[in-house]
Nucleic acid binder design. Structure first.
Lengths: 239, 239
DNA sequence: CGTCCCCTTGAATGAAGTCAATACGCGTGG
DNA sequence: CCACGCGTATTGACTTCATTCAAGGGGACG
């Protein structure tokens, strides 16, 4: 099943014509990107919308002195750059965290798709809104939460998102970030990430080994993170 | 002149019909909000798009234990909540930093406006993209910049944004945030904000008094902040 | 004149960063 | 097959940036 379709169904029913259009579009434009390669890079002209079909990717920005911050993680079914053609140049890059399959969609195709399938168009906009809400929540994490809370929060979030995408078990999921990447996502140093992980393990909240995250005490983890999932908008479907 | 029209002209020429529609819509729906009052609140149903006509407002989120983080500042001409009706409930609040004049626009009016005036529609989307880019940049600030850099960065950003909106002089602008609000925007404690400000003053980079920010050494301030304005997309107009 | 909010300052504490060394697994080429 | 290099994870000691706590000052406003 197409991961974007799967995702949009959480928002609304799609017409089967709409679903077919998506599937056709993706088959035509899918390509693979290897780990650590960029899907799009800062400063480039922003030509295409992208949908992740498989794997994880990260949106990030680099400061002049080399510091990097990851501002979003994308998993299968995530869409980014929907209206990106409206800006002259990108303010961020996106790189593959794992090997990635991604579909690249031209503005024309986006427009055609959205014109012909209004419900689908709403779904795509909804997706963007949810991803914006996630980014906003990350911002709050960086501003207000401690290192410990941030890492716990990220684990809660990714488990839920992956579950919603049908990519996780009840209490475990893939988690392919290295500690360095985890540091770039949470705005703390690599060394400190390591120490925080130890604390989470010692508190019997999680296990994390060879890219598998196992949550041993979800309630405890949520509490540690002050996690409130409403920003993910996963509940019942709306209109 | 209508502040939104003024803003959109940075992106493209508008038809005079489009400009008239905006102006009419705003006259009908403008209302005042007093300092510290909320324009919209977290958890509410998201019914309207909003345009700030006058004053400053802040988007913020509150953690269960009371910590607050400001994730965006809005000034005259800024638009938020364009497609907000697509989500069931808001994940954030917006409150007035100063007394504010704001226009509230119903989804129907938004749709009608965007259907009838395609160029205007693009302009509105572009605005959203720029505000998203700003939020993303704030995220990077919180994750990677020191307290000193963050405050300096915010000053650079607001001066430029206000200048672009025709609301600032060459080297000065209004800056109505209290130190507590500045702390909530930069993710540092109020006490530390105070100390950072002293440092910026001592370094002869800025003066800040009775809500007026005067930049005494813009080059120095930019350097201190590692400021790169490209994310504001202010340069020449695009298509 | 008192209260409230905002700003300022000092001293003590604490969270996280830096520096440095070590360990481990993995692939590659000798 | 083994040595080597590389990226990643771990640990300890030390430093620094920022928070917390506490107190005091000033201006606006009722």
């Amino acid at each position: 099943m197409n991961p974007l379709v799967l995702r949009l169904r959480q928002f609304t029913d799609l017409s089967s014509a709409g679903e077919t259009s998506i599937a056709r579009l993706f088959r035509a434009s899918a390509r693979s990107v290897e780990r650590n390669a960029d899907l799009v890079v800062e400063g480039e002209q922003a030509l295409y919308a992208h949908v992740i079909l498989e794997g994880w990717a990260a949106r990030y920005k680099t400061l002049r002195d080399g510091r990097q911050q990851i501002s979003a993680l994308f998993i299968a079914g995530d869409l980014f750059g929907l209206h990106t053609r409206l800006v002259r140049e990108l303010d961020h890059s996106v790189r593959a965290i794992t090997p990635v399959q991604v579909a690249r969609i031209s503005p024309d195709d986006v427009n055609r798709l959205m014109d012909r399938h209004p419900r689908l168009a709403k779904g795509l906009l909804w997706q963007q809104l949810v991803l914006n809400a996630i980014e906003r929540t990350w911002l709050v994490n960086l501003g207000q939460r401690t290192a410990y809370e941030r890492v716990a929060h990220l684990f809660c979030e990714m488990l839920l998102r992956l579950k919603a995408a049908g990519l996780a078990g009840e209490d475990w999921c893939e988690f392919p970030l290295t500690q360095t990447e985890l540091a770039q996502a949470t705005g703390i140093s690599t060394v400190h990430v390591n120490r925080v992980l130890q604390r989470l393990r010692a508190g019997r909240l999680i296990e994390l080994e060879s890219n598998i995250l196992k949550v041993r005490d979800l309630k405890g983890l949520r509490k540690a993170a002050l996690f409130d999932p409403s920003y993910l908008h996963l509940g019942a479907r709306s209109r």
